[in-house]
């Protein structure tokens, strides 16, 4: 088993408030790593730092052993680090298959000028094949030619995941991928995650539904106030009383069905 993505001593602050506080993190190929924690714990910011969306203040990010600290998000994506967003970032004017195709075509960056003068993209066939495979895998083939603007949000989640897969990543960062899915969809979605992990992908996700975390996760990171407060298999970590206090202490003031 190999580590695909690793962060050491990662820190990020806004206006002198530490949002991510010396976090050590690693994602293993073939494993599902889940980050849990109350709102404001810094989970999304950690994702943003790992994927290059936000510059980090201190620490190192390693991808397949290479130092990629400070790399731009597009460069990281081409290296095999794919992510999805908490708020859908699907391209509304493109069809579902074109959405995927953007990602399938851009892990080779050359050929922009070639396109301007009207030459065919040499990777075209491979991109089309990748898109078709991913569409079939996610059950999206029937709506391949539908514009994303008209799709319901649960479907958009799948489109976004498909887009991430089209870059042929070795690491997937999924920010609350199951929000907006109904129970059946969620169940299917988690089976899909297991299939992906079985393909030696490192799957990292932020998830709030602890029951599902318990079922699917191989490793759980518990974050609170910017720090990683516990790491380990879900059975060990989620049962700990200090972890429960951190997770439920914040949620207990509100009815659970309204908790995000």
């Amino acid at each position: 088993m190999s580590t695909t993505l690793q962060a050491l001593g990662l820190s990020k602050s806004y206006n002198d408030v530490l949002i991510v506080d010396h976090v050590d993190f690693s994602a293993e190929a073939g494993r599902i790593t889940v980050i849990v924690g109350p709102n404001g714990a810094g989970k999304t910011t950690l994702f943003n730092c790992l994927s290059g969306v936000e510059p980090i203040d201190a620490g190192v990010v390693l991808h397949r052993g290479d130092d990629v600290t400070g790399w731009s998000p597009d460069a990281l994506s081409r290296r095999g680090l794919a992510r999805t967003f908490q708020r859908s970032s699907v391209f509304p004017t493109l069809t579902v298959s074109d959405n995927l195709r953007v990602a399938a075509e851009n892990h080779g960056r050359r050929g922009i000028l070639r396109g301007v003068v009207g030459m065919r993209d040499p990777g075209r066939r491979r991109a089309v094949r990748t898109v078709r495979t991913v569409l079939a895998e996610l059950g999206l083939s029937a709506i391949a030619d539908v514009r994303a603007a008209v799709l319901p949000s649960g479907t958009l989640r799948l489109v976004e995941l498909g887009r991430a897969l089209c870059g042929q990543p070795d690491t997937l960062l999924l920010d609350e991928p199951a929000s907006g899915l109904d129970d059946a969809e969620t169940e299917e979605f988690h089976q899909l995650l297991h299939r992906l992990a079985a393909r030696e992908l490192a799957v990292v996700m932020v998830e709030h539904d602890l029951e599902l975390v318990d079922e699917t996760a191989d490793v759980v990171y518990v974050m609170d106030a910017g720090r990683v407060v516990a790491v380990g298999p879900p059975g060990d970590v989620l049962g700990r009383s200090d972890v429960q206090a951190r997770l439920f202490g914040h949620l207990i003031d509100r009815p659970l069905d309204q908790a995000p």
Binding site: A82, T93, E105, N106, I112
Partner: peptide
Amino acid sequence: RVGRALIAVRDDESGALACG
């Protein structure tokens, strides 16, 4: 390819970056 990528940038810049 270029046209799709440009529309991606127009529709959602961070999404386009995430697509490489």
